[in-house]
Simulated assay, not measured.
Amino acid sequence: MDERQLGSTGESVTAVGLGTWQIGGAWGDVPEEQGRDVVRAALDAGVTFLDTADVYGDGRSESLIADVLAEHDADPFVATKAGRRLDPHVADDYDLAHLREFVDRSRENLAVETLDLLQLHCPPTHVYYRPETFDALETLVDEDRIAHYGVSVERVEEGLKAIEYPGVESVQIIFNPFRQRPAEHFLDRAADENVGVIVRVPYASGLLTGALSADDEFPENDHRNFNRDGEAFDVGETFAGVPFETGLEAVDELQSRAGVEDLASFTLRWILDHDAVTTVIPGTTTPAHVRSNVAAADRAAPTAEERAAVDAVYDEYVREHVHHRW
């Protein structure tokens, strides 16, 4: 699988990585051994980038990764996140004391001395206007608690502000055929600044796999049930902010116009066709899906006609719901 440079970190990572929110929590019940099997499948398929967070299952996702790495010969680049443990979740508490506490907990969960990459976890917008937060991250680098740092953002404008800080080496952002604004305003700027781009929520919470239907019912502890209107966190994290029924209509139209049968692999390849993207991190709860995600990297690039179909469906069905917000 193709590898790409992760900004200025000096690290190269596979174009398709693994997101581990699903095996941590908020996607229904996933047995721990099943979660480990997902990580094993990714490593066995050659994936060299794993993304997690300290709040995925209250550290469960980080610990499952550590379990597998203890038994496996692979040495992937592991990115985690911090900040969402704050209660209340306020900008002023993104300070050295809290971040050091969160980092030390993640180091313990992941069983490492130094975290490969720490990302601020979708903090309040005001954090990006607090130089002292980024000074704190520099201190954590100096203390060898973290090797690199970046941010995970909700909005394009947050990403643009973040990369004004020279120490920010990566930005994680939602980008897919139903969330296209980053291509318009952010990707080229990130490339110019040599900042790695990590794409999350590539499937829009399953919409862009083509496997969902109006009859689907999601478990009570699945965010696709409890966060449709943003009750728990930013609504843009659930179905990429697209109303579920509208998203289903858009998926049907996209498959018809583009003539795409395997929408999931097409979606990943569409994302990777943007050169500024370093890696895309689809999550899953099954090893089989891990393998199909990895295979998507070798799919032929979208044709001009397919790209035009994506843009047309976005303009007609999706743009009004998401483009002005994220």
Rank of each mutant, 00 (worst) to 15 (best):
S292N: 05
D234F: 05
V277E: 08
E306L: 10
N293L: 03
I271C: 09
A232T: 15
E316F: 08
A264Q: 01
A309Y: 00
R307C: 08
L248C: 08
E231Y: 04
E237Y: 10
A258P: 08
R307M: 06
W270Q: 02
P243I: 05
P282S: 10
P302T: 00
L248M: 09
H274L: 12
F266K: 06
E237C: 15
D234V: 15
D311C: 04
T279Q: 08
R291G: 04
E249V: 07
D315C: 13
A304G: 10
W270C: 05
F266N: 04
A276I: 14
A295T: 02
H289M: 06
D262S: 09
V310W: 00
P287G: 10
N293R: 04
D275H: 10
R269S: 09
A312P: 01
D229H: 15
G241S: 03
T284D: 02
L272H: 08
A301D: 07
N293V: 05
V294P: 03
L268C: 13
D262H: 05
A276K: 09
G283P: 04
T285V: 14
Q255R: 15
P287I: 12
L263F: 14
T246C: 11
I271F: 09
A258H: 10
R291M: 06
G230S: 08
V294H: 02
A264I: 00
E316D: 14
R228E: 04
I271L: 06
G241Q: 03
F244K: 06
T285A: 12
G241W: 01
R257I: 13
F226I: 07
R228C: 01
S256N: 15
A288D: 10
A276T: 10
R291D: 05
A301Y: 02
H274E: 13
H274Q: 15
D275Y: 04
A309T: 01
D315K: 08
G241M: 01
A240P: 11
G230N: 04
F233N: 04
T303E: 02
A295C: 14
V294T: 03
D273V: 13
R307P: 04
V313P: 00
Y317E: 12
I281Q: 14
P302G: 02
F266S: 05
L248K: 12
D229P: 08
A240R: 01
R269G: 07
L268G: 07
A295Q: 01
R269N: 08
F244T: 11
A264H: 03
E231K: 12
V277H: 02
F233C: 06
A300M: 07
G236N: 13
D298R: 15
A250F: 09
V242A: 01
G283Y: 10
D234E: 12
F226T: 05
D298T: 13
